[in-house]
Design a protein around this nucleic acid. Structure first.
Ligand SMILES: [Zn+2]
Ligand SMILES: [Zn+2]
Ligand SMILES: [Zn+2]
Ligand SMILES: [Zn+2]
Lengths: 148, 148
DNA sequence: CCTAAAACCTACAGCGACTGGAGCTTCAAG
DNA sequence: CTTGAAGCTCCAGTCGCTGTAGGTTTTAGG
């Protein structure tokens, strides 16, 4: 009753994610299968809540799931060198920096086309004209992958 | 042979996308079906090349496909008011700004955890510790799914 | 103890915007 | 005429969830 008694909905609320997300993490082996009641419902304890919280926090910081998996594994090895963990975080920082650079370039291009004075009809619209002709752009904003 | 003679691979190279992407755009009704050779191979003309180029440029600027669809439709109506097109671009700019704000917040959090001096073992690692406890973060970086 | 509602279960489909592969056919250069 | 590149269709996979259908279990009130 005391320890392993958290049902999945309460756990989801406590870490701010959906119930399905937790089941998904279990399915892909990120969270270990919890104990079940006689009626096959999942019951969690504090240790698993912390693990899930770790995962969600890493996800909120943009780490992809494979990186989260590595970080989780590392977090269990207190004696090991943390260079690996730091490396993962550094690569994530670099990825974030690349995305910011890309988006800044997109932003300036969007601002350019919007702030350029132009007529009110489509045929005089700077937005449409710019989309039709990249030469009207000031920079190379070419996206290789600006996602996430 | 003069006009409608561009095969799909050449078209793809000329706009900088994959062959499959063009077929995909046709499949979802973004590009009209081109003429075919006797052997059922696609052949494109200059007008379609320009349309595809418009689509790719809009995608590079981060517009989602439904927005691209609208912009394409608008671009064919030279007499209409361009307020709609400008509105779509403005919303895209706002989305980009939200994404940049989110990523900047992530960046500063990642920098904080990386630049904080800490020991070389996992148990003293600031990266792992921060992931395990959001209280070590300085801001609310909580991602609400701000999309491209 | 009984009932009703809330929460849970599994299994699977769908999102966005492509991308890759298998297994075949057609085209164009030499 | 041969050959290899490029084309074709159909389907599955990517990422990280999210939603739905159709059923079962838990829990609180009466
Ligand atoms: Zn305009
Ligand atoms: Zn451009
Ligand atoms: Zn460290
Ligand atoms: Zn945090």
């Amino acid at each position: 009753m005391g320890e392993l008694s958290i049902p999945i909905g309460k756990l989801a609320r406590s870490v701010g994610c959906k119930v399905q997300t937790i089941r998904y993490y279990e399915q892909i082996g990120l969270l270990p299968p919890p104990v079940r009641t006689a009626g096959a419902q999942r019951r969690y304890g504090e240790a698993q809540r912390q693990k899930l919280s770790f995962i969600r926090h890493a996800r909120e910081l943009g780490f992809p799931l494979p990186a989260v998996r590595e970080l989780l594994a590392l977090s269990d090895e207190g004696d090991s060198d943390c260079a690996k963990a730091d490396g993962i975080a550094r690569r994530q920082l670099e990825a974030v920096n690349r995305r910011i650079a890309m988006l800044s370039s997109l932003r300036s291009e969007l601002e350019r086309m919007l702030h350029h004075r132009h007529g009110h009809r489509i045929r005089d619209c700077r937005v449409i004209a710019t989309l039709a002709d990249h030469a009207l752009c000031s920079q190379d904003h070419h996206a290789e992958r600006a996602e996430s």
